[in-house]
């Protein structure tokens, strides 16, 4: 199997598709159950369809199969696990995450994610969803920072991905609108803008090398254009089930992946640099509806 370099690893593996379809069948009732509970006047696939109908984009339309599978997105399962986890009293302090503030007051999740990263008074920092969950686990629930619940950031089976997916789903269809009123929010967004354009590393890449034009491909993958809001909202709609990885993935995972492809240094999970990048990339999608959870190559 050739080194694909910048693209997903096993997306061309036919066995993958079989396992996907099995999951899809299982997920059907979940989609219905969660669909009713969450803010699903418009389920994610309809949000995406609305974007597809509004612009001509090779990126948005590149996988008809994914679009068809979205009602049975395996991420919906992960989100359902997250719902349980969120409302369960856990950790040494035996409290649930309902005690945690994601920006709109303790336990309020509706529309919280599309307004992140944001500044939090209690930490004096701009935080993204993942770092805020870490904060909640360690400070509110009392987990040790080395506890697997806190440390394990990746994979559909991780607490992080379950919680992130559940929380993010409460913003499905809503417009990205990360606040920039606080000077720190503005500073982080502006630093992210610089990082986007900053070339470095063995191959001189910045983010625009691959995300500055419409309809361009790296091998078979059509790339999103960061300067087109309709493309970019899908690009940043994480958590998403990545078919090629057979796992639900986060924004942090994507940032790390692109720096890796760029032959630049490994991103530290939740570093301020990663949050600056995410602040800017969210600003780039401002006003566009989020697709949560999404499904990607």
């Amino acid at each position: 199997m050739p080194a694909m370099g910048w693209t997903a690893t096993n997306k061309d593996n036919p066995l993958m598709e079989v396992s996907m379809f099995k999951k899809a069948l299982l997920a059907l009732p979940v989609a219905l159950a969660l669909g009713a509970a969450a803010h699903a006047e418009k389920p994610p696939e309809e949000v995406l369809q609305g974007l597809i109908d509004s612009v001509d984009s090779a990126y948005l339309t590149q996988s008809e199969q994914n679009l068809l599978m979205m009602p049975d997105n395996p991420a919906l399962w992960v989100g359902m696990d997250g719902e349980d986890l969120f409302h369960t009293a856990r950790g040494p302090n035996n409290v649930s995450m309902e005690a945690c503030d994601f920006g709109k007051g303790p336990g309020v999740l509706e529309g919280a994610y599309v307004e992140m990263p944001r500044y939090f008074e209690d930490t004096g920092k701009v935080m993204d969803l993942e770092t805020r969950i870490v904060h909640c686990m360690t400070e509110v629930q009392g987990f040790d920072k080395d506890d697997p619940a806190v440390k394990q950031r990746h994979g559909s089976g991780s607490d992080h991905m379950k919680l992130q997916t559940y929380i993010a789903m409460q913003s499905n269809g809503m417009e990205w609108n990360n606040p920039l009123d606080h000077p720190l929010e503005k500073a982080m967004r502006d630093a992210g803008e610089v990082l986007f354009a900053r070339r470095a590393g063995k191959a001189d890449f910045n983010c625009f090398a691959c995300h500055g034009q419409s309809g361009k491909q790296v091998r078979a993958s059509v790339l999103p254009n960061a300067t087109v809001g309709e493309d970019w909202t899908k690009a940043i709609s994480w958590p998403a089930f990545r078919v090629g990885h057979d796992n639900v993935r986060s924004s942090q995972h994507r940032v790390r992946g692109c720096y890796y492809q760029m032959r630049q240094a490994g991103m530290k999970a939740g570093s301020d640099a990663s949050i600056a990048v995410i602040s800017y990339w969210t600003d780039l999608a401002r006003g566009q509806p989020a697709i949560l959870p999404d499904m990607k190559r």
Partner: peptide, 18 residues
């Protein structure tokens, strides 16, 4: 913004964000 970007890269989070 440029100073902050360099700081986040090379100094923040205990020796840099990477």
């Amino acid at each position: 913004p440029h100073e902050l970007a360099e700081y986040l890269m090379f100094e923040a989070n205990g020796g840099g964000g990477f």
